[in-house]
Design a protein around this nucleic acid. Sequence first.
DNA 1: CTCCGCGCTGTAAACGGTTACATCCGAGCA
DNA 2: TGCTCGGATGTAACCGTTTACAGCGCGGAG
Lengths: 351, 351
Amino acid sequence: MARTPRRQSAVLQTVTIRDVAAKAGVSVATVSRVFNRKGPIREDTFERVMAIAEEMRYVPDAAARSLSTRSTSTIGVVLPELHGEFFSEVIRGIDVAARQGGYHLLVSGSHSNSEEMRAVLQAVRGRVDGLIVMSPDLEPSTLLADFPSTFPLVLLNSRVDGRPSITIDNSGGARAVVRHLASLGHQRIAFLRGPSQNADAEQRLRGYRAAVRAAGIDADRNLELTGNFTEESGYDAVKRMLATRPRPSAIFTANDAMAIGALGALVEAGCAVPGEIALVGFDDIPIARFLAPPLTTVKVPIADLGRRGFELLRDSTTDPSAPSLKLETTLVVRQSCGASRPARPRRTKSQ
Amino acid sequence: MARTPRRQSAVLQTVTIRDVAAKAGVSVATVSRVFNRKGPIREDTFERVMAIAEEMRYVPDAAARSLSTRSTSTIGVVLPELHGEFFSEVIRGIDVAARQGGYHLLVSGSHSNSEEMRAVLQAVRGRVDGLIVMSPDLEPSTLLADFPSTFPLVLLNSRVDGRPSITIDNSGGARAVVRHLASLGHQRIAFLRGPSQNADAEQRLRGYRAAVRAAGIDADRNLELTGNFTEESGYDAVKRMLATRPRPSAIFTANDAMAIGALGALVEAGCAVPGEIALVGFDDIPIARFLAPPLTTVKVPIADLGRRGFELLRDSTTDPSAPSLKLETTLVVRQSCGASRPARPRRTKSQ
DNA sequence: CTCCGCGCTGTAAACGGTTACATCCGAGCA
DNA sequence: TGCTCGGATGTAACCGTTTACAGCGCGGAG
């Protein structure tokens, strides 16, 4: 009862390891050994197999190899968003490190709610050897509940017990800003908060509060304005704030996007920056230095975040000691804070 | 001679379709049919298998499925770069469309030279069902040489005979700019070129030339300045140009990055924009509207590029008629061209 | 009552590699 | 010459699915 052998979907390569073996007059094991440079192979056998393989345009099938090996050589990257300077920079950081290490990247973004996020995590798992997850808004511990603790996984910008993670020194950055402004003589420094469920936003807030207390300057809770990381919310918050008295002499926004909005509101109100009110942001997105005046802000090492994330993932498979680490942030003084300094625009990305 | 059975690398799931079948008292075929909703299955069998699978936390193995099915459900995305607003927006466009269609994204970027590019294409192939490739600088036809013409593949922003592609109406956009400037009375419009091996750059140049000729205004070849899409090159070129006479009354740059550099040079020289010299860019990157003055430019539908790319790829597998298409660009008039108009900043990305 | 057809399910052969173990072969040695 | 030993290679089980085909039970037609 001859079965009709299944034939592949036309599109992919037709030449298998068996074809190569037959043509080279060796066994499949030998061909496999040649391709993986494993086990003892005679010089001339090696050459011959390679030549034939080349000639036949043989490329090992990734799926078959994965099935046998139990390892895809790809890692998954799950971000809340794919769009924007910030995330693309993270991905790039991971990409260069990963490719160097012989890994591919399976990315996925745009998961607003946790249902979607969970689904994506499930789908991606099984196709990857490890996962880099960034979930600033959603509580990650619940999302990761049904990942065995042995599954290689590193978190970016959030922490879960027992999982390695890479975070940013948000608090330190915020403290540096407040110290800097205080040293310039500011007594009333307003803080424009980010969304309260966002971990970064909360840490920046805590840094602000700690530094204000430490500097012994005005700690009025009315100085804390609410925003949600969007430019619009920055505009609105500052618009409202300008109607109140006494005004702060400086505004520190929890991210640069809100600083842009804030700047719009200030300019609209005819309020000189930094003359009447100084302005400082957080993130150092590329636009920051093109604002008028160029924005003083906190630089976060975004690409590093990605690179270190990959490295940590790679290492965590061999050494599960989970050495989470925190990356330094640095204050970038431009002109919006009042400590003026010239700045010639530098080269940026094309297109 | 009992072989020691191979056991998986500890990390991944241990429960296979056989385990589920055994526990549910059915055969593997039935479990498979339940999971793929294929073939006739009795209601109660379906429920029981599903329940057991859920309970055992069974997740089908992607590699095995791929091997059997000859289809990963992922598509590859190869870009020259991953960083920046432009590319991240392309990826996002692809991502949302792909996820909706049940596909995953394998991305790869940062290939400066064609050797690297070729290697990446090889590595990615076999792991994906199709490929979306963007290679504005490198000649794509040679890169794609050893891809059988049946391999599903679409090109972004470049064309190769017999391959479906999505391009942007660079020429039309450039013509619109020149027409607009001419209608404002400009007689001498300089053009700041992009790198000559870049296809987009060349098309924009051609559009500029055609429109200048059509408008019957000054077509002096000295009006064509050389640049390479970087901000720096824009700065340098305009700096040099300002030393010559007669000056143009408007500068049209082949992308926004160069416009930023150009603006820097103009401001530095005390040259009023648009008062003395009008300025127009191309791309409409997000920074564009935050420049002082806000930059008039050509908006290219970046996310569409990605989405349409995916759709074309999906369709091309069933219908290989390769309906390449060209996306419209639109002129966005802000203030740098002299046709003033107010603009309230709108909401942008957070963080 | 027999036979047919159909709905549901089971069996086992692929899919294309990797790799444990067996085998072969020639050199070195007693 | 017979034996050992190790390097090079072959054989075939196994990775976890999908799916062609076979089988079974049952209701209705003849």
